[in-house]
Design a protein around this nucleic acid. Sequence first.
DNA 1: CGTACCTTTGACGGCTGTCAAAGGAAGTGG
DNA 2: CCACTTCCTTTGACAGCCGTCAAAGGTACG
Lengths: 262, 262
Amino acid sequence: MTTAPCFQAAMGRYFALSDDDCRMLEHLERHTAPASKDRVLWLLGARVQNLFILQSGWACTVRDTGEGERQIIELLLPGDIIGLREFTFRRHGSEARMISAGSVSTFTHQHIVDLVAASTSLAVSLFATIGRQEALLTERMLVTLHRSARVQVSHFVLETYLRLSKIQPVDPGRMPFPISQRLLGQILGLSPVHVNRTLTALERDGVLEKHRAHIVIHDPRRLHAEADFDDDYLSDRVDGLSERLAELREGDASFAVSRSGS
Amino acid sequence: MTTAPCFQAAMGRYFALSDDDCRMLEHLERHTAPASKDRVLWLLGARVQNLFILQSGWACTVRDTGEGERQIIELLLPGDIIGLREFTFRRHGSEARMISAGSVSTFTHQHIVDLVAASTSLAVSLFATIGRQEALLTERMLVTLHRSARVQVSHFVLETYLRLSKIQPVDPGRMPFPISQRLLGQILGLSPVHVNRTLTALERDGVLEKHRAHIVIHDPRRLHAEADFDDDYLSDRVDGLSERLAELREGDASFAVSRSGS
DNA sequence: CGTACCTTTGACGGCTGTCAAAGGAAGTGG
DNA sequence: CCACTTCCTTTGACAGCCGTCAAAGGTACG
């Protein structure tokens, strides 16, 4: 039951947080419990209530698409917040479940409102977080719609490698990857058969080597080229907002004042 | 230079806004100017600075995908805010441009910070807005990855019809639709040739009839079936948050207080 | 009246899905 | 420690949706 401030680190990626901000984030991570593989965090159609912070292990949100097919919408890694995109909805439009065993912190959607009310910088950090998650989704869509299966697989592996590297050092020669070929197909919208053919080809060409729960990246540069990768969308850089936050903190409410009515 | 409170109406979809909130939104819509067809609002890679409220006309955000192909990421209709998903980024990961002539209100990303600082209910409404935009993207991805071109086209037309209907009455027999077949292909990830074949088939079967700038929906119910449509993701219903906002407004900061202690 | 863009149609090819079956690897219970 | 079950991986054959290429007709606009 570690209380590694996983989420604090993630939220602090965009700009420095105050001590008060950190205390509030700690509060969110207070109720942490282990979660087994395949543990369901919420079901499709369930009333929105709880959000989660993934402390360890991998998770995903997923939708069934008629005819028994499933599509993974987002892959969540440690430090990610689960449910932010849906916290203003009445009911969940997806299912959320653990991919591997791990642990999650639980809190309610009303806590998010409290956070937003209490701290502008945390609110903006949440916008930054949701924006990054959406950028992942956008990039996935671009790749799945316009690139071959080979590029898709390469792109996803590299993206995941880069995301993981942000939260912990990762050895390209042995990167954690608890994703079966079937699941990989559900992430990319490919059939498991074709995923297998693609992986076999990538292994034959010495690009990477997928094992049951890890991947060997033989040549990161080669993979980068295979994936035709442009990593702008993974950037945590924010611009011009921290300055504005500082001004607001110092009482310059030039705009905010004008609201309360002349 | 109308000051139709287009955006206020959109922001008020989730829960009632106070007079102060409305005044602040008016402020955002102060600088409104006409925008011609194909007017570029920002370019890929440009520094993030301005956001826009689409007062009239249609717009989109778009990405080039190598090899001269383009993918429309989101379609923006009157009342939509343009740039919210990227306002915490340093540079734009997309291009934004007008699809048809219209008018837009312009303000800076720092204004969003001011808004969030000044009003919790507006901040939460912004989260609701960004969440709905992301839901559109998710649904588009599910349909494009797993359904035939026929379903994709039907789904998109119906979705657009329902979105439009939320902001103005729409006659199914003559719905505005300033989208060329080429553009429709860029939205769905299909070739213009195949879009044409699909539309031809849908017209032959009496489902709809696309003209240069409008669509005739012969039988909405039939279209609904063709699209295998589930409109949950278009819901504006929010749950449990307005109550919390009211409590906070009345000074109940039970959570916010507990943060700084024990 | 010409230019540019949009729409339409046909032929052809390929990437990827489906179906089917067999071999492996991991976990379970006796 | 072994049988059994279940899931994952692998391979082959075949089909189909959709992209590409090409060309012609239509429509708006200057």
